[in-house]
Design a protein around this nucleic acid. Structure first.
Lengths: 387, 387
DNA sequence: CTATCAACGTTAGGCACCTTAACTAATAAA
DNA sequence: TTTATTAGTTAAGGTGCCTAACGTTGATAG
């Protein structure tokens, strides 16, 4: 009688097969000799690795590439067996999805914008995510293979299973939504996701150390040091909206004041309060203000400059603490080149030299970042920890 | 005719030998079966590894340990061939040395205190370091083996070879001092060293994420995240003395004011200015002030509490940025338990919950930290990168 | 159409580094 | 002295890579 329960273990890959698979995931399709050369693997080893990966469908040949001379080289890419991931940017104004293979070929994408009149509450967002993810799965094609990971970017703090998940509000996305079985879940803060995306595909490509500062409705920061996302003990690293403010001798700073002062609403309130009647109608949102400033409106320009200096002061504090060397500005206001010079001037005056740049990805940053994290998770699941 | 020049390459160790050696360095002497079990190595592999390590004298047998039953097990430790390191804490008030084997057996130690009347300038420190290191080498015993690494902790910023070494002033220790040939040099900021020491041997033992805040003549911070020291692009991570201050709406913060406000001198000046005549003679240094506060002197207690709150406000900012979860207080003032409650109260009011502790190592923290870093460097040199 | 050449891919053989199995060695207790 | 138990060694085998040699594919020259 057999009493052993064989756990359904994944096929264990050899080291070189892992490396080849990871290479195809991260760099996209390539030929056998090219991969072998760049990984330092001999041709026999490449043969074995490819054979190993083709069996479960992790890779597939997609053609042959001819050089100027000699036999043509076989080209491979990540195959159906590797499956796909769903990346969700679950914001309070919109829900955005990217569905892709592990080597980032876009399978489909979706977007849902909440009507401005309707302020989305947590349950609305959760229901929207449920509906969108459900639709994707319903319309999924067999050739996509299995769903490996569902990644969700949320505007809340995110802590690991050992942390205080209650306090973080990170689980509100699940209040009206049961995640699909069989797929792993990756949850990450939206600003952190944007930082990850800027590192891999955006303004911080190839940089090991930088911070991404989101300037918009709220203010937040994602910290990358040594190419790794810094999350902090409570998932609160970079939550600079919670910085106490003001910080001056013999004052009593208040917790979380920075966000109130630097967020879009307070900023616009100050702009309106200070708007001279002869300067025309006061702008009702930041886009309008930026447009005015861009067309030479002096008062608007002064408002933007003042805000840039305020942002710069806070950013300088962060730069002084972690010395990232590079700051990428994103978010509704941060993406504007108009803000950049003011921030740059203030930071360089108050802190160490730091390069300051605008985002290259704009509103796509978050969904691209959570896609990246989902893919990394899927890779780990497929090739194991020791990759 | 032989034209090949054989570069004097180190003996290449097998993977298991590397692991065994590292184990003996980090955990101290141990028996063969114990090491094998904890590393998951079979007995034949252990035999091979030990044989490999005994040839160059990297390890040596020091005895046999008898269990309650069966044959006794051979005990090994790091041997002469592994050599030794010199760790120097090159401060502006003192120079402190620890000379140790790679498994931290103290071979000798030295200490030099500059007369208080004489403010040590850079050249003095450099000369003192030269003299002390020279003395150690002159008195070194053959059984110590070769000097592998000279580690120096300096109160300056420290950047890598690719950084701006001029601006960092990190090389002033070498202005009157030529380092010994054949040994590698490790240079690190003294506060960072203290942080490393607290992680491995002190108040933050076993913690992967924390910050060490040095409160004394100056204020500085060492950041450990994911068990790794965070240095920053310009080696300026944690240089919170350079935080701009004040930070409040419609003020113009000044660069580096935090240090002026929070350093010992400015603090004492404020204490003296505010000292009521009927309270007795004003304290002339912080030790005196702490003593008064400790014996119940009310005014002194209020001064300490006020300073604790000021320190706490700055620490809260750092905690909000990196969310370390734990803060270790060190340095002349920070080591005092009197400061702790005030800092704790302020931090917890202004930021996320963070555990706050006093240093367990006191003034030894820095030299223990640079010793650790020197040993890590020596280990890398001996077993190669892939350990 | 065939010979030639260059690059691709596979097969054969070997080495490094680990394992398990079985043996010898040492030590306390029966 | 025998037995049980733990320590260490020897022998044999497996995995994962390599190099060397050989077969395959495709362009080009005669």
């Amino acid at each position: 009688m057999e009493h052993f329960v064989t756990t359904p273990t994944r096929p264990v890959l050899t080291g070189s097969a892992r490396a080849v698979f990871q290479r195809l995931v991260e760099q996209g399709p390539s030929t056998r000799p090219h991969i072998g050369q760049s990984l330092g693997l001999s041709r026999p080893t490449m043969s074995a690795a490819i054979a190993e990966l083709e069996k479960p469908g992790y890779v597939e040949m997609i053609g042959a590439i001819r050089g100027p001379l000699g036999r043509s080289a076989a080209e491979y890419r990540v195959g159906q067996g590797a499956g796909y991931v769903i990346a969700v940017d679950a914001g309070s104004t919109h829900v955005r999805l990217r569905v892709s293979t592990l080597d980032r070929r876009l399978l489909t994408s979706r977007q849902l914008r909440f009507p401005v009149s309707h302020i989305a509450i947590d349950a609305d967002v959760s229901q929207a995510v449920a509906a969108e993810v459900g639709a994707v799965i319903a319309e999924s094609l067999p050739e996509w293979g299995p769903l490996r990971v569902l990644g969700i970017a949320t505007p809340t703090r995110v802590v690991g299973p050992e942390g205080d998940t209650e306090a973080s509000r990170q689980n509100v996305v699940f209040c009206a939504f049961t995640p699909p079985k069989g797929a792993a879940i990756v949850l990450e803060n939206n600003v952190n996701c944007a930082a990850v995306a800027e590192m891999h595909y955006g303004a911080a490509q190839g940089e090991a150390d930088f911070v991404y500062v989101q300037v918009g409705l709220k203010i937040g920061m994602g910290i990358i040091l040594g190419e790794r996302l810094i999350r902090g003990r409570n998932g609160a690293a970079g939550e600079i909206g919670h910085l106490s403010f003001p910080l001056a001798p013999n004052t009593n700073p208040l917790r979380g004041e920075a966000e109130h002062f630097l967020g879009t609403e307070a900023f616009l309130a100050r702009v309106r309060a200070d708007w001279p009647p002869q300067a025309g109608a006061a702008p009702t949102d930041t886009a309008e203000l930026l447009k005015l400033a861009g067309t030479g409106h002096e008062k608007a320009q002064r408002c933007v400059a003042r805000h840039a200096a305020d942002i710069g002061a806070v950013v300088a504090s962060c730069v002084s603490v972690v010395d990232p060397g590079l700051v990428v500005l994103g978010g509704g206001l941060g993406a504007s080149p108009l803000l950049l010079p003011g921030v740059q001037e203030t930071v360089n005056r108050l802190s160490y030299a730091a390069d300051i740049r605008n985002t290259l990805l704009g509103p796509d940053a978050t969904v691209l970042g959570i896609e990246r994290l989902a893919i990394e998770k899927a890779l780990l699941l497929l090739i194991g920890q020791s990759g």
